[in-house]
Amino acid sequence: MRRGRALLVVAILTYLFLLSPFVVIFVVSFGQTLAFPPSGLTIQWYEKAISMRMFRDAFKVSLMVGLVATLVALLLGVPAAYAIVRYAPKGRQYMEFAFESPIVVPALVIGFALLRFLVHVGDIPVLPALLIGHTVIVIPYAVRVTAASLRNFDFTVEEAAMSLGAPQWKAFLRVVLPNIRTGVLAAFILGFTLSFNNVPISLFLTGPGITTLPIQMLSYMEYYYNPLIAALSVLVILFTVLVTQAAERTLGLSKFM
């Protein structure tokens, strides 16, 4: 009993530690000024945040980049994970390491390298460069999460499908993919949130007219000191939760058939 109570206290403290910043941001976002506790309540910052063109455009860019980069990362990462797990090729650990290297290398370095080689040397426009950059940072998670899911998959099931007349690609789509869909979904959610909230890569690869939301928020904060940023943060958190929920509802329950 005593031990149970002690654990409960620890759990509550941990939750407080994790959630208190959000609580502060949430409360501040309704304040007149950037102060805690707030001196008076208002929703003007929300109105402003939503009506400001710069944030709306940046949101659209972030949304588009997040979706496209995550989808491309999955299109590359899922087959890679399949090959690594299914065929256990020689030097598999090096391959896995290569796919995970974007996690190990500081994102700032990747961002700078991409700027240097894609934009300066390769003369690639800002938007494709941004997409490539985000794809690079999402791929490790796409590979990792789907590989974990594939490791739990019994490949004799795939063989059974092939023996029943399905070529391997069909067996993959009809049998393997539906059974690892939770992993793919998790990878999608993780990848999208990662891309949507990314700063270090976007910092280098955004340019005039094309900016992601976090970068736009960052530059706004450099000039203004008011609760608008808090209101925007609340909106971003809400949006992320909604995306996660929606993805789980639609993809999690339906079959890929």
């Binding site: 019994d154 004799t156 099931v157 063989e159 059974a160 499908a161 539906p178 059974n179």
Partner: peptide, 13 residues
């Protein structure tokens, strides 16, 4: 060819 496996290998979904 038809095959029956020890683990049955039914399609779980």
């Amino acid at each position: 060819f038809g095959v029956v496996y020890q683990s049955y290998a039914l399609f779980p979904h």
